[in-house]
Design a protein around this nucleic acid. Sequence first.
DNA 1: GTTCTTGCAAAATATTTGCAAGACG
DNA 2: CGTCTTGCAAATATTTTGCAAGAAC
Lengths: 138, 138
Amino acid sequence: MDEATCSRLLEEHGIKPTANRILVAKALVSSMQPQSLAELERRIISIDKSNIFRALILFRDHHLVHAIEGSSDGTKYELCHSHDHEHDDDQHPHFYCESCQQTYCLNDAELPDIQLPQGFEAHSANLMIKGLCPHCKK
Amino acid sequence: MDEATCSRLLEEHGIKPTANRILVAKALVSSMQPQSLAELERRIISIDKSNIFRALILFRDHHLVHAIEGSSDGTKYELCHSHDHEHDDDQHPHFYCESCQQTYCLNDAELPDIQLPQGFEAHSANLMIKGLCPHCKK
DNA sequence: GTTCTTGCAAAATATTTGCAAGACG
DNA sequence: CGTCTTGCAAATATTTTGCAAGAAC
């Protein structure tokens, strides 16, 4: 995805497309897997980590990315796949490889509906499966 | 649960029951909810956090507790409910309250079987639902 | 006396904030 | 000018390790 497309993507989510933000968005778009802040830092050497962090927070607040927790090595960020800019309803399970620390999206699997006890109000859900990925299993 | 019972619990899991470990086990047994290291530190003022930490690692390796991640505020630990000392098969979903930071066990809900793509090998799974608990919702 | 356990300090890691300088409009 | 954005530094939080002294066997 080129810069113009990334820029448009940001604007669609109500985010002012600055040069830095476009770079962060580009890095996320071109990533096969959800990225941690540290991974993004390594990939985007021209931007300070505090600004990558602030861009991610901003993206998250505008439902452009969501944060994935539970991977034993920090929060990972991935682009929301849904095109609903208000809600983040494309939550799918993830797989964390304990050997190479990569997080894989299990897009094909459904995140099941869990029946909450009376009085609980759910906002989001994260299902993380851990183990070995095909590459590390060999 | 008294000290003797906790001591027996540790021994059943192949852990030498020292005074400190019994205290940590007692704190976990008497907790309604999974506890973070920081919470346990506050509750067990007589033991240094490094030793609480080492006790938790030891407990986890002996399948006496399991670690719950994905709660935005650190790893939480809870006693395994299963009586199988080799495997940790009582994995159930958890609920994290974004207001009071408590983690609740959803014992009644089933953790669904997710079909992994070819080549992936699962070791464990964590399903964390976030939102507001009944107390904070009011 | 050898091994295990403990407390304290500090390293390592991850996340977040303060602030002044600069860009933008 | 006033607001937003950026880089750098540093605060915070969390997890983990090193090591020497002491306890247990």
